[in-house]
Design a protein around this nucleic acid. Structure first.
Lengths: 243, 243
DNA sequence: GTGACTTAAAAGTCATACTTATTTGGGAGG
DNA sequence: CCTCCCAAATAAGTATGACTTTTAAGTCAC
């Protein structure tokens, strides 16, 4: 096919590294189900397929193995593991699955997770938030109000995401804080399914203001309750909850 | 012994692989804070330190990088990343941190997480649990009752862990299900701090039975409420909640 | 001081040779 | 015919040296 001298590989599109290229191709393929659990991949086959050296393939496989997506055994090959064993909390796995055919299912799981976490995070935030965080919170809430009418969904979304990030961070729990990216993904993913010119639910907007107030007042119970109302709304949208 | 030809490395203790050995040494060291964020490690130094080849070091580093524990940059080296960027949901990272000096803090984070998740999981379980899962649940609950008195804490713990695993699995949410290991770790970790001959709180035992009943009856609201009472107790033990 | 050029350090990649574990199949013995 | 053990084949694991690429940092002219 492509000539380019007696030695050397095909031209490299150089991303951050060849192993990343392989990973960003294999990972999505596996999580998408292109290679069903039980499928065995041989490293030399992968070498040829991606036109890279042993080193590169091995490093990519090693990472996939650390995510429990595959298992590498001697004399057997690299086997795709059953879905239940995957590290579904790994941000990269989440990204891959959200980009694949599993997206709807994944969004449901994440929304359920979010609904469980955020009220608790809000309660903790009411007790631990710094004055700066309280200020950020009210600012984002007000901006949400301001952008909630008149086809300003993109701007609204920015503040919505920022609001929830602050709540999670202000909880003081490192694990809650790390879910900021997940929540952001869920929130943006939600708008992509709706029509862009439908303004957000006014009640939800009000609830955000209430949460900001409760956190500033140090009222954990109220912060938790209002946040729960927000997330219950999110669950309803996906029909996880009965209407 | 080192007779084995003029070349070759020192004797290998052969675990599942050299890269694993390196990983299981570097990972805990980093998460324990032996190499504070900003520290740079050079691969050739690591080669010498562990007496392994570049291949092996590179694979280990690649995995650490996928956990966001380190960042590898050309002309710089392998830099330890700030704590906030670590993948704190990675089971391996959790394991390492639980084994290190951070253990108490980690147990608090995990208990808070658990308290947020389990009530929601129980509510979902009440709606989705299969008859078999309901049976398992009541069986474990009854066994907990049976072993709750007379220094049978190890046996009690087995059923306690199993009970919570079933709840999480029965929720039908894959992400909740994956937290089974974490909950198991928290539960066992808790008993290691107590005296072994103190029997578990009778009220907690009763609550488990109630949860099992509620799930079988399909009463999501009750399952959630009783589970919350259990986890609130766990939070209190760690003084996360005011008494 | 500023900007362009050079240098060197360290990770990244490749090819190859070699080692080790493990499956599989076949043959000896029951 | 079945079992057990051994040998061969196979694919991953490891080591090593040569080379490439990126980039921080130093240097020199302006």
């Amino acid at each position: 096919m492509d000539e380019q001298g007696p030695e050397g590989r095909g031209q490299r599109p150089r991303g951050r590294g060849l192993h990343d290229r392989v990973l960003e191709s294999l990972g999505p393929a596996i999580t998408a189900g292109d290679y069903p659990p039980g499928t065995v991949l041989r490293t030399d086959e992968l070498e040829r397929r991606y036109d890279v050296s042993r080193t590169v393939v091995r490093e990519a496989v090693r990472v996939l193995e650390s995510m429990h997506l595959v298992e590498s055994r001697r004399r057997v090959g690299v086997t795709v593991r059953p879905t239940e064993e995957w590290d579904v909390f790994d941000p990269q796995v989440i990204r891959w699955r959200l980009a694949g055919p599993d997206r709807p299912r994944q969004l449901r799981s994440l929304t359920a997770l979010r609904s469980a976490i955020e009220p608790a995070a809000a309660a903790l935030a009411a007790e631990h938030a710094t004055p700066e965080q309280c200020a950020e919170l009210t600012e984002h809430a007000l901006n949400m109000v301001a952008t909630s009418r008149g086809q300003q969904l993109p701007a609204y979304l920015v503040h919505d995401v920022a609001f929830h990030r602050v709540i999670l961070r202000a909880s003081g729990n490192e694990m809650f804080a790390r879910l900021g990216d997940v929540v952001a993904e869920v929130l943006t993913g939600r708008t992509q399914h709706r029509v862009m010119f439908s303004d957000p639910d006014p009640e939800a907007v009000t609830l955000h203001v209430r949460v900001a107030e409760a956190v500033r007042a140090g009222d954990a119970e109220a912060a938790e309750r209002y946040t729960r109302e927000i997330t219950v709304g999110a669950l309803r949208e996906l029909d996880i909850l009965a209407p």
